[in-house]
Design a protein around this nucleic acid. Structure first.
Length: 207
DNA sequence: GCGACAG
DNA sequence: ATCTTGTCGC
């Protein structure tokens, strides 16, 4: 069964995160990844605007969908899913097909090993990757891997340009960290910070 | 208790 | 994330 009821309180969200964390598969458990979906949410005038962009591995746009939702929860570090899971799941329903979801936020690199990317991945039972623009927890080692509580849960893709920021990748679901990093790299254009599916989803959600 | 804290 | 113009730099 793949259905999860969206929590309506922080306490309920924490309980669900602990439950879902046990179901995350951190190894490659998927077929060919041909269509990658990037999702992002932006906020304007009290409304959440979510966009999803599906691209093939040659970075061509295959499909796109957008939704507007009422904002029901504030942003709480560690409980990002409480605010964005609803809008994202609604938007994903409108897509015809995709083999993996890239989420702007963390996956296993989370206090309870259940960031937004894990939540979306397990809820949809789809391979998922978390790609965050800043660190929530954990410490970056010299080899760029990120560890938390003795576990290696993420990887830092160092910024190129002097002025740009790093990208923090972690497993969402049904993927190994190595494969996740490899896929993010292969879909990021030279000189860009975010992989194309996420960069375009970000652009579209703001229009 | 104190500080840190995805977007 | 968002509020926000012009401006510095590749």
């Amino acid at each position: 069964m793949t259905g999860y009821r969206l929590p309506s309180t922080p306490a309920a969200a924490v309980r669900q995160q602990k439950e879902i964390a046990k179901k995350v598969v951190a190894r490659d458990d998927h077929g060919d990844i041909k269509l990658v979906c990037g999702v992002d949410v932006s906020y304007r005038a009290g409304v959440a605007h979510c966009s999803a962009v599906v691209m093939d591995t040659d970075l061509n746009i295959v499909e796109q969908a957008s939704t507007k939702s009422e904002i029901r929860h504030p942003y709480i570090p560690g409980l990002f899913m409480l605010r964005e899971a609803g809008p994202i799941l609604r938007t994903l329903k409108r897509l015809d097909r995709y083999d993996l979801v890239m989420v702007d936020g963390h996956g296993l690199l989370h206090p309870r090993r259940c960031g937004l990317a894990c939540y979306i991945g397990v809820a949809k039972d789809k391979p998922a990757i978390g790609a965050a623009k800043s660190l929530l927890c954990g410490s970056v080692r010299n080899d760029n891997y990120i560890e938390l509580g003795g576990e290696t849960l993420g990887y830092t893709i160092a910024a190129e340009g002097r002025k740009k920021k790093n990208l923090y990748v972690s497993v969402g679901h049904r993927m190994s960290l190595e494969s996740a990093v490899s896929l993010v790299r292969s879909m990021t254009k030279k000189g860009e910070w975010l992989p194309e599916p996420l960069r375009l989803a970000d652009t579209f959600s703001r229009r």
